[in-house]
């Protein structure tokens, strides 16, 4: 039995990801939990997240999820999704600046040409005004042959919904990039960790394939 723990720190809807994993997983047990022992005894871990980063980080620290994630990263495959991915970074611009876990090098930035504006204004190079949040299906260009991309065509569209994006540090390796006003990191990998800005659980065939790949991934590259 393949045991997958979805870390529940009280933020947002974890049912979608749990249901999608159950849908693609044979002999898979999906547990939605915040219990450290359960998470660390699972074969694989999902670190999800939606909502505002300040609230997410507060709950992550209050429940000791920061230590759990750090430990899980050393020992088993971990998939971070959306704000879960952002939480791994050093710092986010959201909520007037929030320190994140610092488990990977990079910054979380607002989609805006003028970062000082209270109201995000984002334009394409040709002047087209872009809505924020970045919501919908966008192309992900794969930068490597990571096992989680197996069976997924390059430039497949995935479903995104976010107002902040990751600007990855030079030390880290992007696995996928997308473009919305700016080029941004849509996926990166680091040892046992694969992190995605999009929502695989909502991205139909490509997303389900990625989750299915995660369920058989041994954590190596």
């Amino acid at each position: 039995m393949n045991k997958v723990a979805v870390i529940d720190y009280g933020m947002g809807n974890l049912h979608s990801v749990a249901k999608a994993l159950e849908h693609v997983g044979k002999n898979t047990q999906v547990i939605v939990t915040s219990d450290a022992k359960t998470i660390l005894s699972a074969d694989r871990v999902i670190f999800p997240g939606v909502g505002a980063i300040r609230d997410c980080m507060a709950e992550i620290r209050r429940l000791g999820v920061d230590e759990i994630v750090q430990e899980a990263m050393q020992s088993k495959p971990l998939l971070a999704i959306c704000v879960g991915m952002q939480a791994l970074m050093e710092r986010s611009e959201e909520n007037n600046g929030v320190d994140c876990l610092g488990l990977a090098k990079g910054q979380v930035k607002l989609f805006a040409n003028d970062a000082s504006g209270a109201k995000p204004i984002l334009r394409e190079q040709d002047g087209e005004l872009l809505k924020v949040p970045h919501m919908g299906w966008n192309i992900v260009e794969q930068c490597d042959q990571h096992p989680l991309w197996a069976g997924i065509e390059n430039n497949t569209r995935f479903y995104f919904v976010h107002s902040y994006y990751i600007s990855l540090g030079a030390e880290e390796k992007a696995s996928g990039v997308s473009h919305y006003g700016v080029d941004f990191t849509a996926a990166f990998s680091k040892g046992n960790v694969f992190a995605v800005q999009f929502h695989p659980e909502k991205s139909q065939h490509g997303g389900l394939q990625l989750l299915s790949n995660f369920l058989t991934w041994d954590g190596a590259n």
């Binding site: 947002g12 809807n13 939606v50 909502g51 505002a52 609230d55 949040p133 976010h162």
Partner: peptide, 8 residues
Amino acid sequence: SARFGSQC
């Protein structure tokens, strides 16, 4: 939106 996030 404060509780569940603007995205939803």
